[in-house]
Amino acid sequence: MVYATFLVSLTVILFVLNLIIGSVYIPIDQLIHSLSQTVNSQDPTALILLKSRLPQALTAILAGAGLAVSGLLLQTLFRNPLADPSILGISAGAGLGVAITLMLSGFLGNALHDLPGVIGNLTITLSSFLGAFVVLLIVLNLSFRIQNNAVLLIIGLMISYAAGACIDLLKFFSQKEDIYVYVMWGMGSFSNTSSGELSFMAPIVTIALGISLLLIKPLNILLLGTQYSTNLGLNLKSIRLIILLVTGLLTAVITAFCGPIAFIGLAVPHLVKGVVKTSNHAILIPSVIFGGASLALICNLIAKMPGFDGTLPINSVTSFIGAPVVIWVLLSKKNEKRF
């Protein structure tokens, strides 16, 4: 309970900090006043808040929570501490979708660059989602035929490599400007989601997180491996399908709107387990949801610290902040015997 209160209040505090800190400082009293304004307000502070900071903070919360839960679910399913949302090749599929679109637009005479920014963004989002979704379908299809989880894991990795190779080839034949757009996309960002896009992303992520909370019992059983799970009456095939579907959907949607966000999905489950020290998913899943949201909010806060010119790429920040923290948690005395 202590940890739960801590994680929830941490998320709330970080959320508020994300709203008030940025290139322009917004004091608390003004914040409350501005949030009551409508989107069409002429107040510049309200505009910054409602059009930029609020969607950005909400995106960070959704992306952080979604990726972290995906990571936890996959680590449990594959009983592998190295599993994360990118492991099934879904992020790579998203990347491939984006790369194909960018290169096609290059062939069509820079059609994408001529499009207004919003539609250009939407095109990238759609192609990313399509790429991720196609890979998800392939993985799901294979999961019907392959019993062995380790084999499925390796196939996911192979899909990643194959998609990566295709992306490299496409880059090789692409124009500089398109490669630049691709590289920027690959760095990840929480700031490209408009409130309209958010109204698409939020329900999907929320529903997926809700489903993950319904999986507490099967996830706990899965910790004992496939043999014990079957002996405890768990239908492995259907539970695996549900987990792949939930994590695949989360990864596809989040990657479509934010780009491939690295690290959070891998690190947050380890950080949380290092602190709460339980294998019970009834505690782990909520903790990981708030832990993921908090880490994403911290990283977003650092990325837009005043003093940096514009916003730093999220991926550099997540790994830069997260890696030392994970190492510190794993090396701490209490965790010595964990692995």
């Binding site: 910790l223 004992l224 491996g225 043999q227 014990y228 002996n231 387990k273 020290k277 339980t278 294998s279 964990r338 692995f339």
Partner: peptide, 13 residues
Amino acid sequence: SIVFTERLNLTDM
């Protein structure tokens, strides 16, 4: 109910 030979490395359980 079964007890398998397979050893499990269960942290935190």
